[in-house]
């Protein structure tokens, strides 16, 4: 499902002394099956924006189109129920939302809530758990006994159980250790590639954004500053430094080298794979000039 924002404004507590405009004239397009990261500092509007994707918030003005559904300020709650099944949301620290006595009951809750039979939901719970890399043994365990990384997976399995077309993830790896982070990110990428789920990732880890996203939406003060590939965003130093956006470590190191006089014309490396090519290239070029 394609996502389209047209001239979207969002105002919290309108017509009150606390009125606050969180989104201003947001226009963007997210293609079906793509992997898009939303970045920006705290308070830039990331959370407000993603809450429009399943109708938790409705635009104060303008419209949001998701597939065939157009959401405006006047849409009725009853028109949003189908959307809520199609858009899965994994909020920050989702393990805090685990509530059932067993992992199985927790994962089944979504499908049953959306009208699936108990029997079918049981089957779905198994499949979803497998998708997140946990085996059947976990079904009867209490979510509270699991490690942080395992709980995060169970929460994700709960979202996947309703088979969303669009998966929205708010800081899915925050607080996990190095291995846990890598595993979750790989899993999300796999969902995009194998199930063609549209992935929308809010993240503070620029390394994750550079490694996994195809498209980046950069927000500042409720406005879209730029929508482009990670490569274009991170190599645009004017924008990143003006907005205080941290760039990937590889980009920082490559910039240090260029400042010192290393000769390189291509776009700056944004992840380790492209950094390795960058290193190889600069030394090869240097050797060539020496021979000439």
């Amino acid at each position: 499902m394609e996502i389209l924002f047209k001239n979207v404004d969002y105002i919290y507590q309108p017509n009150s002394p606390f009125q606050f405009k969180a989104l201003t004239d947001v226009n963007l397009k997210i293609e079906s099956g793509s992997f898009t990261a939303i970045i920006g500092k705290t308070g830039s509007g990331k959370s407000t924006l993603i809450r429009h994707l399943n109708g938790l918030l409705k635009p104060s003005s303008g419209e949001v189109k998701i597939g065939n559904l157009t959401i405006t300020s006047s849409i009725k709650e009853s028109q949003l129920s189908d959307l809520r099944r199609k858009v899965g949301m994994l909020f920050q620290f989702p393990e805090q939302q685990l509530f059932a006595d067993t992992v199985e009951h927790d994962i089944e809750f979504g499908p049953i809530n959306f009208g699936t039979t108990k029997e079918k939901a049981k089957k779905i719970a198994r499949e979803s758990l497998k998708k997140v890399g946990l085996n059947d043994e976990f079904l009867n365990r209490s979510p509270l006994e699991l490690s942080g990384g395992q709980m995060r997976r169970v929460a994700l399995a709960g979202v996947l159980a309703v088979k969303p077309d669009i998966l929205v993830l708010d800081e899915p790896t925050a607080g996990l250790d190095f291995i846990g982070k890598k595993e979750i990110m790989k899993l999300i990428k796999k969902l995009q590639l194998e199930e063609h789920t549209t992935i929308i990732l809010v993240s503070n880890s620029m390394e994750d954004v550079a490694d996994y996203a195809e498209e980046v939406i950069l927000l500042s003060k409720g406005k879209v500053i730029k929508q482009a590939s990670p490569n274009k965003i991170f190599s645009n130093k004017e924008i990143t430094s003006a907005l205080g956006i941290e760039t990937p470590q590889t980009t920082v190191l490559a910039e240090f080298l260029l400042e010192r006089g290393v000769d390189f014309k291509g776009s700056l490396p944004i992840n380790e794979k492209s950094f390795n090519n960058f290193l190889k290239k600069i030394f090869e070029e240097k050797k060539k000039t020496r021979i000439l």
Binding site: L253, R260, N276
Partner: peptide
């Protein structure tokens, strides 16, 4: 990675800036 390219840096822990200086030193003498 540099080692694989035949460039040997001492086995110390260094910041990005320090590593950049070392690479530059090697590069500029090439």
């Amino acid at each position: 990675r540099l080692f694989e390219l035949g460039i040997i840096l001492p086995n110390d822990y260094e910041s990005k800036e320090m590593v950049a200086n070392k690479i530059w030193k090697y590069y500029s003498k090439m």
